[in-house]
Design a binder for these strands. Structure first.
Lengths: 194, 194
DNA sequence: CAAAAATTTTCACTATACTGAAATAATCCC
DNA sequence: GGGATTATTTCAGTATAGTGAAAATTTTTG
């Protein structure tokens, strides 16, 4: 009851355009079990997981390589930014190694929350990564059951399929740059910009 | 109740000179559970396995990469040998790709069984790979619950920690070259030629 | 938009992973 | 070699993974 790989399994299944029933039958398990696994209500046994991966044609080591980067939340504090020069411009790295390498690239928009307001639901269906750059205010990030306090100058990045909520806990309004990635060709998923 | 990675987990634990109790405590599980997992009497849940790997400091993707090559038995029939020339010698490959690459290299000895005689026990403690080259006679290999018929000209290779038995089922005596590997530096185990 | 079909979720039940304590086996040490 | 200590296994009981059917939801279709 600890692992949170259900959403990834669901994303893989959707990318193959397979129904729960189809996959369950091929893997030799019940539909209800698969349904519960994909929503993290049950932590699958190793046997079950390996059977599912076999149906999807995903080698276990590849799956766990991605799982590793998936389950890692990385918070870069303002004073931890790495600064470097390039082509006359000054850069400050906002995203650590575990996020920048791999098969997801970013797109951005601007986000503002009034005091008490919150954003992000438990299952928005979007697949990929999110990157938040906090400009003003303070907030709480709830990610995979754990809570993180963030404030102006901090940067946070995580896998968007995992349930997450961000809430303005301060008095002022909360402002941040928000970057979202589509799934691209390097991962399991056949379709681009799904 | 399908996976057979218990012996590998036990081998890893022994290489670290840790007791069942120590590991179980660190991983937050009971001693009895670990005991049963290592002898394949229980297929661990994913949570439990990941906790154990964390104690050992083994990344899951690495573990499953090795598990993949571990669980594969490869039988090369006489007429399937790949023949090639090199430095004036003629070679016939006896060992497929899944065995030759990776972190185990081979050493050899000669094996002879009289009719009905059998060799190999369910847990000989030796860690590494075995390679058998059958010269004369016929036999049965029982490996991980499955039975394979082998005869003169065949080659078999497998991970020696998995329970295995070879039995002379023919009328004549059974002869084979037998190759065994020690664990080397590329895998989890600190000690060489343990 | 409403009925039908297909897919997913819920619910009561069964099988098995997991626990804690006692029994067995192995190791230590004088 | 024998008693003490430590490590492992066994056993009865509990928690949770897994099942099969029916209910609820979503999608399709006319």
């Amino acid at each position: 009851m600890k692992t949170k790989l259900g959403p990834l399994l669901r994303a893989i299944r959707n990318s193959r355009h397979l129904t729960i029933k189809e996959v369950a039958t091929k893997a030799g398990v019940s539909s209800s079990l698969l349904s519960q696994i994909e929503r993290n209500r049950i932590s699958p046994s190793l046997d079950t997981l390996l059977q599912l991966l076999e149906v999807y044609g995903v080698p276990p080591n590849k799956f766990f390589k991605d799982y590793e980067t998936m389950t890692r939340v990385e918070i870069v504090k303002r004073d931890q930014r790495k600064i470097y020069q390039r082509k006359g411009f000054k850069y400050e790295t906002l995203c650590g190694e575990s996020q920048s390498k791999g098969s997801h690239s970013f797109n951005a928009f601007f986000l503002e929350l009034s005091p008490g307001q919150k954003r992000g639901d438990t299952d928005d269906g979007h697949l990929g990564r999110e990157l938040g750059i906090v400009i003003a205010g303070s907030a709480q990030l709830i990610y995979g059951g754990e809570t993180y306090d963030i404030q102006a100058g901090d940067t946070l990045s995580f896998f968007s399929q995992i349930p997450h909520v961000i809430k303005n806990t301060g008095e002022k309004r909360f402002q941040a740059y928000w970057i979202v990635t589509p799934a691209d060709g390097e991962d399991y998923f056949g379709e681009k910009n799904a």
